[in-house]
Every structure is written in structure tokens, then in C-alpha cells.
Computed example of a mutant assay.
Amino acid sequence: MTDIVLLTVEGAVATLTLNRPHKLNAIDFATIARLHEHLDVLEADAAVRAVILTGAGERAFSAGADIAEFSGPVFAGPETALREFVRRGQRLTSRLESFPKPIIAAVNGIAYGGGCEVTEAVPLAVASDRALFAKSEIRLGFPPPYGGTQRLPRLIGRKRALAMLLTGDPIGAEDAKDAGLVNLVVPHEDLMDAARGLAARIVDKSPLAVAACLAATTRGLNLSIDEGLAVEAGQFARMAATQDIREGITAFIEKRPAVFAGR
């Protein structure tokens, strides 16, 4: 049976591919579970230093939650809907957001609903010039349940976010970049090369320092500046005892490339 989330590893970069192209890579229970399984493996693998997340096929990154499957729990009432639908999705986007290695979304097509929420949650995103982003949940009679009402305004501002949330209208890749939802837009055929290029510029850095940057930014974003600075200081203190910081500084002084061991 074909895996619903494909995993490949090339050097220090892993690629996860949502593999339900016949369903526009809609996210169902099995996809969520499989993503968690792969993330567990990749987090434990010290050789993997960055992850690219993309969708199979030419049409979609992900059209969002598999509503046909999730309709059962939703129709069963609020308690079941929260337990089976909302919390599962929020656990996934929170895991993607807090993962200690950078995850780069390579958005190859439509990213609607939950697919847009995944893009919001990961630290970095590269989009094909064919990509479209939409908060389509409003058309189905509910607000985004996987963090979209919280992360999107923080990324692109309240008014831009509410225009997407309240209308369900899609925006193109360039508008998404201008708003701050994605980092880079490239021709469709160059998408994976661009994502791998971005990953390559990260994986030669200290993996401990990369993890510290991710943690400090993610944790501090919703704190006051003073609390955020305390988080930043704590992450620096953790690095101060490592070999990586010694190697980085010594290599700079000796005018040579640093070689980081991640310890």
C-alpha cells in the first residue's frame, strides 16, 4: 500500500510529501498520525538537520482537512468535535511550529483551510507561482480550527487576516509573500530546488544554535518583550556551554569555515 506521507532523506535534508493527490492531499486522521510518526523519527535522527514538507501531484499542497471524514465527529456534538477534530489538528500544527529542526513548506499548489494553517505553523515557506492560499472554512460554516485565527493575524496583520478569514477568498503566491505568509515565490518547476537551496543554507550552521533560534522565536512571539528577552537569554545560556559556540567563534577568529558537531 502506498504511504500517505512519503519520507525521503538526502544528506542532511528530509522531505515529507503529503501523498493523497486524488484527494488534493486533504489531511485526514491517518495523515495526521503518519506525520507525527515521521516527525518522531526525524527529531531523533541527528543526521537530519532540516525538513521540507510538500504535496504530491501538480494541483495541491493540501486542500485542508478531509471534511468528509471529519464530518462524523463534528456532527456528533461539541465534545466529540473538539476531541477528535480540533485538538488533533491543533496538536499537529503546534508540533510543526515547535519542531526543533527547521521545517520548510514547499507549497506546490492550493493551500486551503488546514493546508494554509500548516503553512502558517512551519517556520519557513517557499511557494510556487501557481500556489493559492485561502481560509476556506468560513464557506463551510465554521472558523479555522487548527490555529488559523491565531497564527495568521500574527503573521500578516489583523486586517489582512480578517479579510481572508471572513471572505474565504484566495490570494496568490505574490500577495502571500508581500503579506509575510511565505518567504519566497519561484517558478513552479524551480520549487523543490529553491526549498532545498534554502535548507542547504541552514544545515551547515550549528544545529544547536538553529534549534535555539527556533525555540526563542516561537516561545517569545506571544510574550511581552521583557519575557521574550528572558527566553532569548536562556537559549543563549544553553549554547554557552556547548562545543558549537566555541567552534563558531574560534573558526571566525582563525578565518576558516566552522564545522559544527551539534554538541
Results as ranks from 00 to 15, higher is better:
G147H: 04
K205G: 09
G172Q: 07
I138Q: 07
L181I: 05
V203A: 12
P153L: 06
L162V: 01
I202W: 14
G148R: 09
T218Y: 04
F142S: 03
P153E: 05
G147A: 03
A209E: 11
Q150P: 01
V185W: 13
V185C: 13
G197Q: 08
L191C: 11
G197T: 07
V210Q: 08
H188R: 10
L191P: 10
K159Q: 13
N183S: 10
D190K: 15
H188M: 00
A195R: 03
F142D: 00
I138F: 06
P207C: 10
L152C: 11
D190W: 06
I138H: 11
L181R: 05
E189Y: 04
V210C: 02
R201P: 04
T149N: 02
D190R: 15
L140H: 06
A179Y: 14
L132M: 15
L198A: 15
S206P: 09
L152F: 12
K135Y: 02
A194Y: 15
R219Q: 11
E137P: 02
F133D: 08
L165S: 07
Y146D: 01
Q150G: 01
S206D: 06
S136R: 06
V203N: 12
P187G: 04
R196V: 12
L152Y: 11
G147F: 00
D178N: 12
A194H: 15
S206A: 04
D204Q: 01
P207K: 10
P170W: 08
Y146A: 08
L140I: 02
F133P: 09
E174C: 00
L181G: 09
L166T: 11
D169K: 14
G168K: 07
A216V: 11
T149P: 00
A200L: 14
P207G: 12
L162G: 03
R139E: 00
L214M: 09
T217E: 10
L165V: 00
D190H: 14
V210W: 12
K159D: 15
D190Q: 15
G168E: 06
A161F: 03
R139V: 05
I156A: 10
R196S: 04
A209N: 03
V182N: 08
P187C: 01
S206V: 06
A134P: 10
A211S: 13
D204P: 01
A212N: 07
V182W: 04
A163L: 05
L198E: 06
L208R: 15
H188V: 00
P145E: 07
A195G: 09
D204F: 13
L214Q: 13
L155I: 05
L140R: 02
Y146I: 01
A215K: 13
E137G: 09
P144N: 11
L208P: 10
A195P: 10
D204E: 03
A179C: 03
L184W: 10
A200G: 14
P207Y: 15
G172H: 08
A173D: 05
P187T: 06
A176F: 00
R158L: 07
G172S: 12
L162K: 15
L208G: 14
G197M: 07
